[in-house]
Structures are given as structure tokens and as C-alpha cells.
Design a binder for these strands. Structure first.
Lengths: 177, 177
DNA sequence: CAAAACATGTAAAATGTTACATGATTGA
DNA sequence: TCAATCATGTAACATTTTACATGTTTTG
């Protein structure tokens, strides 16, 4: 991809397992190129509009595979929403309920998007997956699609757990007031 | 609390819903004091050892309550582990399985710690909760303890969903190799 | 021809991490 | 008296966010 495509990718509605703002893309691409992890191919569209399309190098693949096979320390816990919920006893139950309802709607939206993405992966019907499957033996295609789809099943399960929890919270708030 | 207590609090084993490294504590306390959200009371232990114990101000309480009652944009999605899992098809299934097992163990550890903390909250048996309940009518104590305990039930549910997902992943990896 | 999409950057500020640095007090 | 705990800071670096800035090409 080039910087613009990456930017759009991270901005896309069905939120990915990772995100990055536009301002990080170009500096990071240059850093990665200097580190020899990716290499850029300069192209010209029309007569003047330049773009640089990057692809991973042998060395980048190596690093990626090493990273994928290594245990990484869990990120520090910083869940602003649960922190907020921890002090719901300090505000009016109505206000807390309103915050919870917005949260539930958000989680449900994520579930819808991730479900769609999961289905698309199972049907081998996403651009990225098609690209990846090109250099893999057809016998493995099903397995790869299933593995990737399963990651989104995980995201869905977590969002589901959060939404369920928030619904229980609403009941708790209503119960004992 | 003073800076030292806050540091220890965030370092404590049963990981909280938030964390902060020691180096952030003191600058942040000073910023918050300048903003009028907290105020420090200087004390001397022994003859020379100075410490500053901070407490929230009226203005700080106000801001806190406003924050608690407001919808906040969800944090950008950045789940390194799910990102890792998304490319498990690129490495040997054995390696992927090993990473998954470590992850499961981590999540289970969190569940154990959070369960214990939840029980302690229900029994109104944590220092912080006791402190908070001091200026609340006794009739509300049960409700407050339940609400706070429920937050940890949520953390547990999410960790459970993650662990279950990881176990399914192990089965998926084993199945079709 | 105007708006939307394509394309790439930088600057300033805030935030977060890792490591270093120093000294006092308490309890075994 | 020595180790653990109490107590507070800073420096250097890396990362992230928000905003600004500019120009080209395609499409309706």
C-alpha cells in the first residue's frame, strides 16, 4: 500500500484490530524503510502526482514472523470506560444509565461491523485476504480464512461480553434506587 | 494519598482498571494541584522526611462528576494480541499455540485477581472502599459496594471471553493441520 | 468547473516509558 | 547496622494527538 491507502484503511468504519492516525503513517513508513523492513516503489499517476507504494522485504517478513511467535507483555490496563463505571455511585443513576446506553450502542455497532467482516473473511471476500491468498497453496486457503475470521469472532465475543455487562449494570442501577 | 502511595497502588498485583508509571505521578499531581483539582497537605515524618498528601477539592469533585456523567469517545482500537493472532497463519502452529497458551494463563491470572477483588468489595473489605463509605449514608453502602464489585465482574467477563476465545483458537490450530 | 478523492507531508503539544538519582526512616 | 520500605524527584526518549498545509487527479 501507499500512505494514503494505509490512512484510509485505518480510518475505515469496521474498526480493525489496530489503528493509526494519518500523521503517523508517513514518518513511520520512512522509519520502517530505513530499518529495511519495507521498501517503497515510486510511481507517477497522471503527469505530476507522485506516490510511493510500499511492500515488505525479506528482512521485514523475518521480523514479523519473529514478533508473531513471541510472547509479548500485556499492555498496561487503561480502560477509561470501566474506570468511569467504577464511580457511577457518585452521579445520578439517570446520568449513569445514559452513559451506559451509549456504550451499549457502541459495542453493538462494533459487533455488527465485525460480524460482517467475519462473514466476508469466511467467504474469502476481502481485498486484503485475496491478496494474501495469492502466494499460498489453495489447499490452505480454507484454513487461513477460518483462522483470520476467528480473530473477529474473538473481537465479537469481547464486545458481546462488554455489552452484556453494561445491560446488567443498567438493571443494577434501576433495581436498588 | 501521597505520590508514593499512588505509585504503589498502581503497581499492585491485582491490576486495577487504570495504571500509571511512577514517573508520571509527581508531575501529574503538580499539574492537578495547579489546576485546582486537588490540594496537597505537607507533612513531616520523623524529623526530615517530607511528604505531601493530596485530597480532592470541591472543584475537582465537580469536574470528576461531570466527566463521569459524560459520554466519551471510545479509545482507538489497538489490541496487539489480536493483531498478532491475525497472522498466526504465517508461523508454525506450534509457535502460535505456545503464544496462545501464555495468553490464556495471563487472562486466567487476571480472572483470579479480579475475582478476589470483587469478593473483597462485596464484603466491603478494601481500604479504598471503606474510605469512600465513610461519608455516605449507611443505607447506601450495600448499593455502592455492589456497583463497584460489578465493575470487576465486567473485567472478569471480558477476560473470560478472551480466554475462551484463545482456547477455541488452540482447537482450530490443532484441527486442520 | 467544482467537489470529492488522491496524495504527502510538517509542527506543536501532550502523553507515556525507561532509566537514573538521592535521601530518610523503620524493623529485623 | 543493614536491608526493606518510605518518599520525591528528573532526564532522555519515544509515541500519540490535533491541527495545519499544499497540491493533483478524477468524476459528476
Amino acid at each position: 500500500m501507499n500512505g494514503y491507502e494505509l490512512t484510509r484503511f485505518f480510518e475505515a468504519a469496521p474498526r480493525w484490530v489496530w489503528s493509526a492516525p494519518q500523521s503517523q503513517i508517513y514518518p513511520t513508513l520512512r522509519q520502517m524503510e530505513q530499518a529495511g523492513l519495507i521498501e517503497g516503489q515510486k510511481e507517477i499517476r497522471g503527469t505530476k502526482l507522485k506516490r510511493t507504494v510500499y511492500s515488505i522485504t525479506e528482512r521485514g517478513l523475518e521480523e514479523l514472523r519473529t514478533w508473531l511467535g513471541t510472547d509479548h507483555a500485556a499492555a498496561p490496563v487503561r480502560d477509561a470506560f470501566f474506570l468511569q463505571a467504577l464511580f457511577f455511585d457518585m452521579i445520578e443513576p439517570d446520568r449513569a444509565a445514559s452513559v451506559l446506553k451509549t456504550y451499549i450502542a457502541e459495542q453493538e455497532q462494533l459487533i455488527v461491523e465485525w460480524r460482517a467482516h467475519r462473514e466476508a473473511l469466511l467467504a474469502k471476500n476481502t481485498d486484503l485476504l485475496k491478496e494474501r491468498l495469492k502466494d499460498r497453496p489453495p489447499a490452505e486457503h480454507d484454513r487461513i480464512a477460518k483462522l483470520k475470521a476467528h480473530v473477529f469472532a474473538g473481537q465479537i465475543a469481547v464486545a458481546q461480553a462488554r455489552a452484556d455487562w453494561a445491560r446488567e449494570s443498567l438493571r443494577l442501577l434501576a433495581d436498588d434506587v
